[in-house]
Amino acid sequence: MPLLAQTPVPPYYAVIFSSVRTEGDHGYADMADRMVVLAAQQAGFLGIESAREALGITVSYWTDLAAIAAWKADVDHLAAQRLGHSQWYSAFKTRIAKVERDYGMDQAQQ
């Protein structure tokens, strides 16, 4: 998977998930990997970018709000959310934003 998501020309949507983890893994890494694979199979999924240090930030990209709502309601994703609330996160915040514009430098241009 490339480091930067290959998103289409805007508009599209971004789900920004910021989190602070609890101590220990408790199955987190395996579930996180599983959720990326599952999300990529969802209608409307465009890509994902993630970084984890003291603060973890994962941004997933979607075609529309309906696709985001369907992902949030996915049975396996709901199970992961419950584990996140009870075991993996001491704090988290989810933000949904419409991407109106994007720009940057492609690695091939370097």
Rank of each mutant, 00 (worst) to 15 (best):
2 P>W: 04
3 L>R: 15
4 L>F: 10
5 A>C: 14
5 A>Y: 02
6 Q>F: 03
7 T>L: 07
8 P>I: 09
9 V>N: 08
9 V>T: 15
11 P>W: 06
12 Y>D: 09
12 Y>W: 00
13 Y>W: 12
13 Y>Q: 10
14 A>R: 06
14 A>W: 09
14 A>I: 08
15 V>M: 02
15 V>T: 04
16 I>T: 08
16 I>Q: 06
17 F>I: 01
19 S>M: 00
20 V>Q: 12
21 R>W: 08
21 R>Q: 06
22 T>Q: 08
22 T>H: 09
23 E>A: 15
23 E>F: 15
25 D>Q: 14
25 D>A: 10
27 G>M: 01
27 G>A: 03
28 Y>P: 02
29 A>Y: 12
29 A>C: 11
30 D>T: 14
30 D>I: 11
31 M>Y: 04
32 A>P: 15
32 A>Q: 09
32 A>D: 05
33 D>G: 13
33 D>E: 15
33 D>S: 14
33 D>Q: 11
35 M>Q: 09
35 M>K: 12
35 M>L: 14
36 V>W: 03
38 L>Y: 04
39 A>I: 05
40 A>M: 14
40 A>K: 08
40 A>W: 10
40 A>C: 13
42 Q>T: 06
42 Q>F: 06
42 Q>Y: 05
43 A>R: 04
43 A>D: 13
44 G>E: 14
44 G>W: 00
45 F>M: 15
45 F>Y: 13
45 F>D: 00
45 F>Q: 04
47 G>N: 06
48 I>P: 03
49 E>H: 13
49 E>M: 07
50 S>C: 02
51 A>V: 11
52 R>L: 15
52 R>N: 06
53 E>I: 12
53 E>P: 07
55 L>G: 11
55 L>E: 14
56 G>N: 05
57 I>H: 05
57 I>R: 14
57 I>S: 07
57 I>F: 09
60 S>L: 06
60 S>Y: 12
61 Y>A: 06
63 T>A: 15
63 T>C: 12
63 T>F: 08
64 D>P: 04
66 A>R: 02
66 A>T: 04
66 A>C: 10
66 A>D: 02
67 A>F: 03
67 A>W: 07
69 A>C: 08
70 A>P: 00
71 W>G: 01
71 W>T: 04
71 W>A: 00
72 K>Q: 10
73 A>C: 01
75 V>W: 11
75 V>H: 13
75 V>L: 13
76 D>M: 03
76 D>S: 02
77 H>L: 01
77 H>G: 00
78 L>Q: 10
78 L>S: 07
79 A>T: 14
79 A>M: 11
80 A>H: 03
82 R>L: 09
82 R>G: 12
84 G>P: 02
84 G>H: 13
85 H>Y: 15
86 S>M: 01
86 S>G: 09
89 Y>L: 02
89 Y>F: 14
90 S>I: 06
90 S>P: 05
91 A>T: 12
91 A>E: 09
92 F>W: 02
92 F>P: 00
92 F>G: 05
93 K>A: 14
93 K>M: 09
93 K>F: 11
94 T>W: 05
95 R>K: 11
96 I>C: 01
96 I>Q: 02
99 V>T: 02
99 V>W: 01
100 E>M: 05
101 R>V: 04
101 R>L: 11
103 Y>W: 13
104 G>P: 03
104 G>I: 06
104 G>T: 00
105 M>G: 14
106 D>Q: 10
106 D>F: 08
107 Q>V: 12
107 Q>E: 10
107 Q>P: 05
110 Q>P: 08
